[in-house]
């Protein structure tokens, strides 16, 4: 009785994942298959639990077996061609999150330099983690839905025109450039703050 129960539970674990119209058919076929495999071991009439376990283990995890019965395409969260766009959008969104939070931090540090810097940086790190996770979750959710419902992107465009340029030489941002950039950013921020102190009502 107990072994029968195990077999039935195994078959149910598979058939519940199948489309209703083929469910019963597949269950019947699997039941006979398991009986055949038990017969092969010479224990069809009175199978021991050990035999049943061995046979079911050979057949493998019910989810995997059910998966093999289902049509092949949509068995991942985000597949091609959506995955390509997903990667791109994710990079942009994460970079924007990092940029936005960092600018906020910079402004805060400059506008109130006396307050505890380490606490500010700690807050920044925390909001970076939570903001990053949220951004990741939203982008992933949206693309999972787009993929699931097979929303078409304009993928048929002429990709030959979209091929990236070969880099001429090894392109790097020179240290001088980034230092100059930084200096200007700081100068601008200082000017902005000075302006605000001079004319508090205007800003």
């Amino acid at each position: 009785m107990k072994t029968n129960n195990l077999i039935e539970r195994y078959i149910y674990a598979i058939s519940r994942l199948l489309p209703p119209k083929s469910r019963e058919d597949t269950a019947k076929e699997l039941r006979t298959l398991i009986a055949d495999m038990l017969a092969e071991r010479g224990t069809e009439q009175e199978p021991t639990e050990e035999d049943v376990r061995a046979v079911l283990t050979e057949l493998g995890h019910p989810d995997e077996l059910a998966q093999k019965y289902l049509p092949q395409q949509r068995n991942c969260l985000i597949g091609q061609p959506h995955f390509r766009v997903y990667q791109l959008v994710l990079k942009i969104v994460l970079a924007a999150t990092l940029f936005g939070l960092s600018v906020t931090l910079a402004v805060e540090l400059i506008s109130a330099p006396t307050s505890a810097i380490s606490a500010r940086i700690g807050e920044w790190l925390l909001s970076l983690i939570s903001g990053g996770l949220q951004a990741f979750a939203y982008v992933t959710l949206i693309f999972a839905l787009l993929y699931h419902y097979d929303v078409k992107f304009d993928a048929e465009t002429d990709f030959l025109n979209d091929l990236p340029e070969m880099p001429e030489r090894r392109q790097r941002v020179s240290p001088a450039e980034s230092i100059i950039g930084l200096v200007f950013a700081v100068l601008f921020a200082l000017a902005f703050l000075a302006f605000r102190q001079e004319y508090p009502r205007m800003v």
């Binding site: 083929s22 039941r31 006979t32 298959l33 050979e58 057949l59 995997e64 077996l65 093999k68 019965y69």
Partner: peptide, 30 residues
């Protein structure tokens, strides 16, 4: 078996195989 049975089902859905149940042996066989 766990590869063959789903494969048989797929070939049937694609119209390359047809099937019939046989009950003579006591267990239903497809």
């Amino acid at each position: 078996a766990n590869t063959l049975y789903p494969l048989l089902r797929r070939l049937e859905e694609q119209g390359l195989l047809c099937s019939d149940w046989d009950m003579r042996e006591g267990k239903p066989r497809k």
